[in-house]
């Protein structure tokens, strides 16, 4: 089933009528980029509000925690529904919706995102929420993989090249890598320069950074 359909059903399953899925930049700016919403392929009002309205605190929460956050207007029926879930946190409203949920998402090695759900008839319990969150994580992962494929995909590195890069990212020198993997220093260096080339990097530092950001190593 297309990701869009599944997200729509996920939202409906929780009693939400609108959703917006966005990525959060992995650097300090934590730039929010909406990638899909209920009006797909158009952009919903919610998406504009999400783009304009999400607080830095919310972005920080979504990239530091997995805990679901919610908001609801005073005396809204959703308040009691959410308050029954003892582990979720309350947050400020996003946009004009009277009630909503924010699920922090992560994928790959350092990709973060969030799924914002809004509506007036939320029906949630621990289990449905966790199950929906699990599904959202899978969908987010699929969507990002799909996007990576469409943009040409990540470079294919051999197992050895990845191993050498991983050890470099752990602070090992070529000598140490060679000893660790039972290679000659020359071979270890060769793997590293192949990896650098494949990653279209200018040197090893650059290659390590790119590999980490692509999630090829962790």
């Amino acid at each position: 089933m297309p990701v869009y359909r599944e997200l729509l059903e996920l939202a409906e399953g929780l009693g939400a009528s609108d959703f917006c899925l966005a990525t959060i930049g992995s650097d300090r700016q934590r730039k929010l980029t909406p990638i899909m919403d209920a009006a797909f392929p158009d952009a919903a009002v919610l998406t504009q509000q999400v783009a304009a309205d999400v607080s830095p605190a919310m972005l920080r929460h979504a990239s530091n925690s997995t805990i679901v956050a919610w908001w609801a207007a005073p005396r809204h029926s959703a308040v009691s529904a959410f308050e029954r879930l003892r582990w979720v946190v309350r947050t400020v409203a996003i946009g004009s919706a009277r009630a909503g949920l924010v699920m922090p998402l992560y994928a790959g090695r350092c990709e973060h995102g969030m799924l914002v759900l809004t509506g007036t008839d939320f029906a949630v319990c621990d289990d449905t929420l966790a199950a929906a969150h699990l599904q959202a994580l899978e969908l987010f992962d699929r969507l990002l993989k799909l996007r990576a494929e469409m943009s040409g995909g990540n470079p294919k590195l051999s197992r050895r090249e990845l191993e050498c890069l991983r050890l470099t990212a752990e602070g090992q020198t070529s000598d140490e890598i060679a000893t660790n993997l039972g290679l000659s220093v020359h071979t270890a260096n060769q793997y590293l320069s192949n990896a650098t080339q494949k990653l279209d990097a200018v040197n090893r530092m650059h290659a390590v950074a790119k590999a980490l950001r692509f999630g090829l190593i962790d």
């Binding site: 990212a169 752990e170 602070g171 020198t173 390590v208 962790d218």
Partner: peptide
């Protein structure tokens, strides 16, 4: 070394 510094900095955002 630098490679590790970069890796650590990226890992912790």
């Amino acid at each position: 070394n630098r490679a590790l510094a970069i890796a650590t900095a990226i890992r912790s955002g």
